[in-house]
Computed example of a mutant assay.
Amino acid sequence: MSSIPTPPAEPGDSPDAYVGLESGAAERLAYERGWSTVRSLPPGAIITMEYRVGRLNFEVKDGRVVRAWKG
């Protein structure tokens, strides 16, 4: 039987560090810090809830990140 693969490691920074940043700058910074996917969403967007390792989600209002979370 083959072993269970180990998921890739996520960057160690906190999603809270992106709150308040301009959305474009936050996205560039997230990629620089090693996030493989960055998703920017408007407030109240309907999204799927599957967890994706390496993805960082931003809720963006008026061009600024108001909420950020992993997955």
Rank of each mutant, 00 (worst) to 15 (best):
residue 68 A to W: 00
residue 9 A to Q: 15
residue 34 G to P: 04
residue 8 P to S: 12
residue 58 F to W: 02
residue 44 G to P: 05
residue 14 S to V: 15
residue 48 T to V: 15
residue 54 G to Y: 03
residue 36 S to T: 15
residue 32 E to R: 15
residue 29 L to N: 00
residue 46 I to R: 11
residue 36 S to Y: 05
residue 29 L to H: 03
residue 44 G to R: 13
residue 18 Y to A: 00
residue 57 N to D: 02
residue 52 R to E: 08
residue 33 R to L: 08
residue 13 D to E: 10
residue 42 P to T: 12
residue 20 G to I: 13
residue 32 E to S: 07
residue 58 F to P: 00
residue 26 A to R: 00
residue 38 V to Q: 00
residue 55 R to Q: 11
residue 1 M to P: 05
residue 49 M to I: 08
residue 16 D to P: 02
residue 46 I to M: 11
residue 26 A to D: 01
residue 56 L to A: 03
residue 45 A to T: 11
residue 63 G to Q: 09
residue 47 I to K: 04
residue 45 A to D: 13
residue 6 T to P: 00
residue 55 R to T: 07
residue 55 R to S: 05
residue 40 S to N: 11
residue 10 E to L: 12
residue 57 N to V: 05
residue 68 A to F: 00
residue 51 Y to N: 03
residue 17 A to V: 15
residue 15 P to L: 01
residue 21 L to H: 06
residue 43 P to I: 09
residue 62 D to G: 05
residue 18 Y to P: 01
residue 4 I to P: 02
residue 45 A to P: 11
residue 60 V to T: 04
residue 63 G to A: 06
residue 51 Y to T: 09
residue 67 R to W: 02
residue 30 A to H: 04
residue 10 E to N: 13
residue 71 G to C: 07
residue 56 L to H: 02
residue 36 S to K: 15
residue 16 D to K: 14
residue 3 S to V: 12
residue 41 L to T: 13
residue 50 E to C: 10
residue 7 P to C: 08
residue 35 W to G: 01
residue 1 M to S: 08
residue 70 K to D: 03
residue 62 D to Y: 07
residue 7 P to K: 10
residue 2 S to Y: 12
residue 61 K to H: 13
residue 33 R to W: 05
residue 55 R to W: 06
residue 48 T to Q: 14
residue 48 T to I: 15
residue 47 I to R: 09
residue 38 V to C: 00
residue 66 V to A: 08
residue 44 G to M: 12
residue 39 R to A: 05
residue 71 G to M: 05
residue 3 S to G: 10
residue 30 A to L: 07
residue 46 I to V: 14
residue 63 G to T: 12
residue 61 K to M: 11
residue 6 T to G: 03
residue 68 A to V: 03
residue 63 G to Y: 03
residue 43 P to V: 10
residue 7 P to F: 04
residue 36 S to F: 07
residue 8 P to Y: 07
residue 69 W to E: 06
residue 62 D to Q: 13
residue 43 P to F: 06
residue 39 R to S: 08
residue 26 A to V: 03
residue 21 L to I: 07
residue 19 V to G: 01
residue 61 K to I: 14
residue 52 R to S: 11
residue 67 R to L: 07
residue 34 G to E: 04
residue 23 S to M: 13
residue 31 Y to V: 14
residue 43 P to S: 13
residue 39 R to W: 09
